[in-house]
Structure formats: C-alpha cells, structure tokens
Amino acid sequence: MAHGHHIIPKKTLFSVFAALIGLTLLTVITALTIDFGVLEIPVALAIASTKALLVVIFFMALKYDNRVNALAITVGLVFVSVFIIFTMLDTVFRGDLDNVSNITISQQEREDEQLRAREPDADQLRVAPADFVGVDDDEASAAVDEAATADEAPAQ
C-alpha cells in the first residue's frame, strides 16, 4: 500500500452484508405481518435508511474517507429534504381547490367593508307601524325615516 488507503477487512464487509440481509428480512416481515397503521411508512423508511447508512459508511467507505466527500453528500441530502418537505407542505395542506373564491383576499375585505357601510344603523331598524304602509322600497325607507323622527321628537 503506497499511499495510506484504508483496507476494509473482509470480516467487516461480510458482517455488513449479513446485517443488510437481516434488515431486508425485517422490513419484509414487519410489512407483511405487523400492522403499524399510520406508522407503516415511517417504519419502512427507518429500516431502509439504516440499510442505506450501512452501505454508505462501510461499502462506500465514507467512515475511512476524506470528510469533504461526506460533506458533499450531506449537502445533497439537505437539499433533497428541502425538496420533499416543501413539496409536501404544498400538496398535503392544499385542501379542496374547487371550494375556493375566485377573488383575492384584499378584494374580499373591500367588499365586506362596502357591505358594512351600506348597512342601516340601529335606529333605522326599529319597527314602526309606518313600515307596513309602503308599497315600494323608496316609500318604505321614507316611512322608516319618519318613524325615526317621530321617535326622537318626544324627547326634544
């Protein structure tokens, strides 16, 4: 060995292989016999990740390698998690796209304000006998106005 490469002993390689086979059997057995419910995917992914770590650390020899290679793949994995997490944040919480208003929120707020401005104040909502006289809207509102004045008049 001219330049200090770590030779991984055969024994290590074979025990890692045995562990990988064992974990493969474990993932098959857990998936086929045990019902983890919502945890089914996390359990399968945890076993797969353990296997992946064994391959990366021993077969790909990252354990004995220059740390910069571990850094490269770690940065890659960080971006993969950003990719997955942010996509899922969108698709999981997207809700029912058919049940959405087609105007913007600020537009909705403006319309709400206009509606509130149009509402008659409390005095105008008082029921007076004159309310039942009017035939069309204009007459009815005129009757309401009269009723309001009539109510206020005795106090003055």
């Binding site: 390698d65 220059n66 290679n69 490269a72 793949i73 890659g76 971006f79 993969v80 997955i84 996509t87």
Partner: peptide, 25 residues
C-alpha cells in the same frame, strides 16, 4: 477523482429525488 465521483452521485441523488417526490405526492 473520488470527490468528483461523489459530486456526480449528488446529481444522481437529485435526479432520483424528483421521482421519489412524485411518488410521495
């Protein structure tokens, strides 16, 4: 050479991650 290979594997990782995201969605 090895660092170059690891960087190539990172691009491979990103290639496959697109498909894994499609699967998840």
């Amino acid at each position: 050479a090895k660092l170059g290979m690891w960087l190539f594997l990172v691009t491979e990782l990103l290639l496959f991650s697109g498909m894994f995201v499609a699967y998840a969605v």
